[in-house]
Design a protein around this nucleic acid. Structure first.
Lengths: 112, 112
DNA sequence: CCATTAGATAGCCACATGGCTAACCTTGAT
DNA sequence: ATCAAGGTTAGCCATGTGGCTATCTAATGG
């Protein structure tokens, strides 16, 4: 697992998001993950390491092929944090609405 | 608005997440946002600029006070992307389940 | 055994990030 | 008019990030 810092940093790059999107449809070997991306393999491997360190993916080598798969729990951590903020935000808006209605009930105060 | 790169990069730092969490409870001036964080103001301002460039917050200066507020649409973009990946992932698991049931239906094939 | 395939490691480079201090500019209060 | 408060700007520095090439190892196919 990893902290939110590395989890969100993992998402802050189109190559890495593309890898996650690809792996959401099932595991794949490194070379297959790499082909859509116009960069040298070592550069791409760095992205995979970032994702693995963040807990987004896990991988296993069998023979000379390393197969990567997604760890969906990590997405839950990310969605969880975002959801909690949204909850706070919405609660605040509800309180605000309630307050505004209170003002309505009191009628206009500064109108000649 | 901004792209997913900067949106997620905005979240990849505890100071910035704390600012977002604070602003989810309502707008606040820069100095109030800064006080909980043990760093010089200019350093903190950089974080605010990252958040503003990413579309996470907007701010307005009146007199010598700049007030910041959250832009919750941005959270929707982030949650939206994550949600779409989860949808793909779950669809894939459903197909996998269906496939495994297919195998069950066919009975054992290699059992003497 | 030899060549090929799949990936790993090392090292280099340019630029971005995240922190700092010092100096500056407005606005507000006295 | 002056001083304090609230930012803002400019510049410095160390480290991180994202790309590259060159080289290396370990499996596999012929």
């Amino acid at each position: 697992m990893a902290n939110l810092d590395s989890i969100f940093h993992g998402l802050a790059d189109p190559t890495r998001r593309a890898v996650i999107a690809r792996l959401a449809q099932g595991p794949a070997p490194v070379s297959e993950l790499a082909t859509p991306h116009a960069m040298a393999l070592p550069s791409f491997l760095k992205h995979l390491k970032v994702l693995e360190a963040a807990g987004w993916i896990e991988s296993e080598k069998s023979g000379r092929v390393r197969t990567c798969r997604l760890r969906p729990e990590t997405a839950k951590l990310a969605e969880g944090w975002l959801g909690r903020q949204r909850t706070l935000w919405e609660a605040r808006l509800n309180r605000l609405d309630a307050f505004l209605e209170t003002i309505d009930d009191e009628g206009d105060t500064d109108d000649s």
